[in-house]
Design a protein around this nucleic acid. Structure first.
Lengths: 340, 340
DNA sequence: CTGAAAGCGCTTACAG
DNA sequence: CTGAAAGCGCTTACAG
């Protein structure tokens, strides 16, 4: 077991100073061609690689960014990670992925643990619990210390920072309108509880679409699902008690579960019931029937978020003007088999 | 924008030495109760947090580990991450998640980038390309420098290190036997190309089960899928040209696609065709019909891998004996709707 | 009880 | 052209 070689060791072996070694390796013109060659050859032989921790300390930046997501089960978040990774790696940054598991405490711990030099900035989507508590002190704390933060998807107006979102209300409006255009009027909604920002916005879009088309909003057709574990029975009642034409679901888990429930009740999708989901994930793609859905383009969101963050990181201190932008990424409706 | 406060600044403010501040904060008994209190109060007020990078440099360990996975689309890998995160966080380690995207080069770059101080050890599953090339120099390099590596799932015998696997051949044998016990003999196999270690082993298990039961192995019923993009048509031919009783698929994407194809061809699952998949992911759970599958217990694999890695990291240098273990995690067959 | 010094591994302004 | 020194932020053995 051979330990990693350091500048010091090379200097000793070659009987020159550490400075000379360092400069040689960085191709400084100060150093004679001769020594430079000698040092570089030796370094190569011993496979020298600078210690990144030492560089981080010296430069006061680690070239690592962290993305915090609520859970990995939603494929959308996985695609955002891919987008972030892509841009970050292109620009020479590492990406640390952290999971908050929808927990406020885990979010706080992650941030506090990493904000002390380990990483240069955060990209994050709020956990459910954080959105419910509306406690964002851990985030404002970090921002006030000069660490850039970019929020995506589940964001809050209470924090000033760069954001990458989609127009959730508009996308939901369009999806609902799509169903209305097919001639449907008894349209059910499977949404989350209201404190989840995107759930709330998507619900608004749905309601707006109905109102715009003079369809009476029937609260009985709206399910706000709190617990992800046992909502199948709620959907069963919804379908049994109402003769629905269509369903709009705010994520793909809800959409695919609606399909399962329908098939058990002998309701055919799409013949008897059309279903639109949200997020173009693997479930929507591989489900039978495959699911018509609002594509969020997580890759693009991730790329954009990473770009914004790195831009902030590489800006000169003096020109840092605390201007925050909110980028809205386009969505599109991907038509598949679950709608007529 | 208030920069993070350092020991130096506290020392200056309080007119004591840096050593005194450091010791006070670490509750050293050397320091008088009085100064200790004073320093701690001040530190709290200014929300002092030690700089982790400086600590890493000093301690020559970063308390971060890295998990490299081939792709995040397979839910199995996501569950392994959860397991690793859980144990790592309990033990005060950060987790860096890297994606190799099944690419050899990305794997090499990730490892080289991080092996210089940023992280203390790796947990990894080999990329397809790496398994195909059989080039593991980047891994042996890192191991020879004294950095512990734990491989999981897609491993190789060419590298000596700790490993966490399942008995892929046995699990496949059992799944196939399960189908045979139902009275099926025309059983198709959807596998990967042979260089993917787990695909090969699962294929072996399938073949063994057939042989053990004196069923002739028919190569026409075996599909070795190379490209994940366009294999639907291959499955179509398989089903059209052969009257199958059942299918064993080595991952859930293949299994769910078989269901889709079957339903398009008017073949009913499970009435006309039973299907067993591999990996208990969200697709298997939410598919209609839901899929009977071999559960790999990714959480447990991740937990075990993290435990083994951290154990190696925290062992005293002298007692480090280069003993490598291979842990085999139990699998189980989860029966759902896709089999009779 | 307090502090100066050395060191983790590096870079760079400065002196010679 | 080469090297000693200072410094990034911390810890700790040692001196006083």
């Amino acid at each position: 077991m051979r330990r990693k070689v350091t500048l010091k060791q090379i200097a000793k072996e070659l009987d020159v100073s550490i400075s000379t070694v360092s400069k040689s390796l960085r191709n400084s013109l100060e150093i004679s061609e001769d020594t430079r060659q000698k040092v570089q050859a030796f370094a190569k032989l011993y496979n020298y690689k600078p210690n990144n921790i030492a560089l981080s300390l010296k430069n006061r930046r680690s070239k690592t960014i962290c993305i915090i997501i609520p859970e990995i089960i939603h494929h959308f978040f996985a695609t955002v990670i891919s987008g972030v990774e892509k841009i970050a790696n292109e620009k020479g940054y590492n990406v640390l992925v952290c999971l908050s598991d929808e927990s406020f405490d885990k979010e706080v711990i992650n941030i506090e643990m990493l904000a002390n030099g380990t990483i240069d900035g955060f990209i994050m989507s709020l956990s459910k619990e954080t959105q419910q508590k509306r406690d964002f002190h851990h985030i404002s704390e970090v921002i006030s210390q000069g660490m850039p933060v970019v929020m995506f998807d589940r964001v809050t107006n209470d924090i000033l920072c760069d954001k990458v979102i989609i127009d959730d209300a508009l996308a939901a409006f369009n999806a609902t309108q799509f169903l209305i255009n097919k001639g449907f009027s008894k349209i059910g909604l499977l949404s989350t509880v209201d404190y989840v920002s995107v759930g709330k916005l998507r619900t608004e879009g749905y309601i707006n679409a109905l109102k715009t088309n003079d369809i009476v909003v029937n609260e009985n057709l709206i399910l706000k699902i709190e617990d992800t574990d046992n909502f199948e029975s709620q959907i069963v009642s919804l379908l049994e008690n109402n003769k629905l034409d269509a369903i709009f679901a705010v994520n793909e888990i809800f959409a695919v579960t609606a399909i399962k429930v329908a098939s058990k009740l002998g309701i055919k999708v799409p013949e008897d019931l059309s279903i639109i989901g949200f997020t173009d994930g693997i479930i929507s793609k591989y489900s039978s029937p495959s699911i018509t859905t609002v594509s969020q383009n997580g890759i693009k969101m991730g790329e954009k978020a990473a770009k914004m963050l790195i831009e902030k990181l590489e800006i000169e201190e003096e020109e840092y003007d605390e201007q925050y932008k909110t980028e809205v990424i386009e969505t599109e409706l991907v038509e598949r088999e679950s709608t007529l």
